[in-house]
Amino acid sequence: MASHNGNARFLAGGHSLIPMMKLRLADPGHLIDINPIEAELNYIREEGGEIRIGAMTRHRNMLESDVLAKHFPIFFEAEHVLADPVVRNRGTMGGSLCQADPAEDLSGVVTALKGEAVLRGPGGAERVVGMEEFHIGPYMTAVQPDELLIEVRFKVKPGGGSAHEKVERRAGDFAIVAASAALWIEGGVIKDCGLACSAVGPTTMHIGRAEAAVIGKAPSEELFAQAGAMASQDCSPSADGRGPVDYKRHVAGVLSKRALSRAAASALR
């Protein structure tokens, strides 16, 4: 990467980059194929109270992972409705996060689970970035041109439950709206909450106000309805072929509420 002065792009699954090149929206001087280091970067590990997912882990591996299914069912739910089998066979965790498409599903999932991204720069220097800092704009992330996303980490905490909700125009399509929710419930009280919506803003929308509103309370439909209403208000969708603004706001609320309810149910199971 250094030898090309940044006039290069990493190529992971290629399911975002290649279509952009075909449409001549991206025109990198060089491609650096990172598939040869897949063996190093394709893993889902449980260690030290954390789940670690390597950047080259394919969607399909996440869909089929028992470890993820056990701790974070949201992965199965999101991957189940993400694109189609062809894309899932090739597309990666790293590519999804680095593409930072505001309609992308996994960014919402990682945000709700309060994941952290590990970036490695020239000379092997590593830094860890939370999702808050990771997304800086549409298709823009904190990852520098000479940095590689290595892995994503999640803390495993007691009483966790999670769920992903998505409305799409057709199977395999990007979301009209998606909501990712995670709850950690202990002794009947919500200890922590993560809520993020996709496709309703310039980046993945982190609904912090709703998180704060439910923490410390007992889970209930009314509470989640309030949280949904906050998601409706706090997102900032724009009108496009998938629908007008009022519709997307409404659906952000509906899906947030549904995701929280199901996350609670999975936490209490």
Partner: peptide
């Protein structure tokens, strides 16, 4: 799902299968 549509300037906004949807088995 299918619709060919245009913006006010006359641009067709369904120039790919990402924007012009065809049904699948699902």
């Amino acid at each position: 799902m299918e619709l060919i549509s245009f913006d006010e300037q006359g641009n067709c906004v369904n120039a790919s299968f990402m924007d012009y949807l065809l049904p699948t088995a699902l």
